[in-house]
Structure formats: structure tokens, C-alpha cells
Amino acid sequence: MRVDTAISEVQDAELDLAKQLHRVRERHTAEPDVHHLGNTLAHRCEEHVRRLAPFAERYGAPVREPHVGSPRLLDALRRKSGELLGHSELAGPLLLRDLCDLSLAAHEVEIAWVILGQVAQAVRDRELLQVVTTCHEDTRMCEKWLRTRIKQVAPQVLVAG
């Protein structure tokens, strides 16, 4: 049985998405929705990792800890350059690119949840299945938000920009 692998896959993908969300939000401080929602969504990813912790223990997966602590030096640099970038004509293309990358990362998380959901059903773990159902829905919403934002920004950047 490789339930531990499926759990680790989700946790790794979530942590990667969280990291990317943090980076992107710091880079786009002049886009308040990206900046603030980026934070909310990143915290959701980290929360998902925590919610899987008891199952990681149950199935013998290695411990994954969300990074906590004060903003790192790199984040501060990114924020500063984000402020400078805010007025630049390059802000749009970079935003579109970052949102697309996030969308791919979110999709990786989403498919990892699909796999874990299948596994949870196969091993008849009702508790795990409940967690998967809620978190999977969150991830789908994150993907959908990215899609909404990409649809809005793409024509402006690629046609008018």
C-alpha cells in the first residue's frame, strides 16, 4: 500500500503552490486582489498540509511542515521590486505569466487530491475522505479564481498592452 506516497504528493504540491503564491503576491503588490487573495490562498494551502498531518502519521508518510516565520529577505526584495514594477508597462505581462504558472501549480495540487481521494475510497478511510473532499473543493476554487483573473487580464495585456 502506498497511501503515504499519495499523501506526500498532496503535501508537497500544496507547499509548492503556497511558496509560489507568496512569491507572486509579493511581486504584485500593486494588484491588491492578487496581493491579498494570494495570502489567503497560500494560508489555505498550508492549512491543508496541517489537516493531512494526522493521516501522514497514520500511514507513515514523512512529516511536512508549512514554513512559518517572519518574511524572508527575498520576500522583502520582491516586495520592493513589486512596488517599483507597479507603474511599469511590464507589470501586465509579468502578472499574466505568474498567474499562468500559478494555475499550473494549482492544477498539480488538484490532481494530487483526486488521486488521494481515490486512494481514500479504496482503503475505506472515511475520515481521510472527508478531509480530501473539503480541501479538494478549496483547490478547485483556487484554480477557478486564477482562471477568472487570467480571463480578465489576458486581453488587456496581449491586445491593448
Binding site: A91, G92, A160
Partner: peptide, 16 residues
């Protein structure tokens, strides 16, 4: 969706 005013000003800010 039709663009909201804060986004219109943001597009003006970046020059598009």
C-alpha cells in the same frame, strides 16, 4: 466581466 473602476484606474496606471 465588465471592468470595475479600480481595475480601470489600474490599467490607466500601467499605461494600457
Amino acid at each position: 466581466p465588465p471592468t470595475h473602476v479600480m481595475q480601470i484606474f489600474r490599467h490607466a496606471e500601467t499605461g494600457s
